[in-house]
């Protein structure tokens, strides 16, 4: 018996070792995440205040309410357009910075570090600066406007300006890491391709079109997909900077999920909204991948 047992252990040494190592981590991950994952899909079809009563199955009712209520639809729209605005500006500015950082200059390392610093600060600590600057009275920006002889602006009452500052803050905090990835992409392109192109008589724009852009495709896909996932669930900085205001102009859906779910305990509607957001996030990522892969073929 004993020899049998030990030979079983010996014969299956690697699978058993793998199980013993992966098992505990996997188990803990599943304990924490399996229930939310399953419920995440089901919650949208229930009515529940999450406290005492049991959830009640209401089918598609929550989703119906979602798509028939203008404020939900406009929150979804705000998540999309504020999110995509943040993403586009960030990606574009980062690309510009990466081009500058890719030039043979002294002190590149210093600038690279400087641009990276905002991303290692907490959203909680740096939004306070923006809030203070935007104060209508005694705020730094209006003080500056007055010293140069312009009229002060009541920033917090203006949908345009609050959206603007959210985009500025998002870009400020994310541009460094995004530029680093662009830079890694630029530097991963084989320099001999440029040499060959030059010998064949390609101009600067042709080099960009036929060498740089195709070489950056995988990096662009990575940046866009991680970016889409990030902006589609962004609400922390919206909560701190504008509270969704003025009059709901920056009330993105993910912030609404937080308020529906954890302040009003309307878990069904929070679930339905998360479902819409989650599915849309996956869809956008797939669409982007699809376009990108199609481009790869030609």
């Amino acid at each position: 018996m004993k020899t049998n047992k030990s030979s079983f252990l010996l014969r299956n040494r690697e699978p058993l070792l793998a199980l013993a190592i992966i098992g505990p981590f996997l188990l803990w991950y599943l304990i924490i995440n399996l229930f939310p994952l399953v419920t995440g899909f089901l919650l949208g079809f229930m009515e529940w205040n999450g406290l005492t009563a049991s959830p009640k199955w209401v089918g598609l009712n929550n989703l119906k309410v979602f798509f028939e209520t203008p404020s939900y639809l406009s929150s979804l729209w705000k998540q999309l357009y504020i999110g995509l605005l943040c993403l586009t500006v960030n990606v574009a500015v980062a690309f510009f910075l990466a081009l500058l950082l890719n030039m043979p200059l002294r002190g590149r390392g210093f600038f690279r570090s400087a641009f990276y610093i905002p991303s290692i600060t907490s959203v909680a600590t740096t939004t306070a600066v923006l809030l203070s600057l935007l104060q209508p009275q005694g705020g730094g920006l209006n003080g500056f406007l007055e010293t140069i002889g312009m009229n002060p602006i009541i920033w917090t009452y203006s949908p345009f300006w609050m959206t603007f500052w959210i985009v500025v803050y998002y870009t400020w905090r994310s541009v460094g890491p995004t530029a680093i990835i662009w830079l890694a992409g630029l530097q991963s392109i084989d320099p001999t391709l440029y040499e060959v192109g030059k010998i064949d008589g390609a101009g600067r724009w042709q080099l960009i079109r036929y060498v740089t852009i195709p070489g950056l495709r995988p990096i662009a896909a990575y940046i866009m997909i991680t970016g889409i996932i990030a902006v589609m669930q962004m609400w922390d900085l919206v909560m701190l900077i504008s509270r969704g205001g003025p009059t709901g102009a920056t009330d993105v859906l993910a912030y609404r999920v937080y308020r529906d779910g954890l302040q009003s305990f309307n878990l069904g509607m929070a679930g339905a909204s998360s479902l819409v957001l989650g599915v849309l996030t996956l869809l956008l990522s797939f669409v982007y991948l699809r376009i990108f892969l199609k481009g790869e073929e030609d």
């Binding site: 992966i22 995440n33 229930f35 994952l37 995440g40 919650l43 996932i229 937080y258 996030t281």
Partner: peptide, 26 residues
């Protein structure tokens, strides 16, 4: 082994907005 590797890639793609409220309930 292959299946577990796919699992590792797949769980990174789950939108955290989907998990947020149910995690709180759990």
């Amino acid at each position: 082994r292959k299946l577990f590797f796919v699992f590792i890639l797949a769980v990174q793609l789950i939108p955290s907005s989907l998990m947020f409220i149910p995690t709180y309930v759990e």
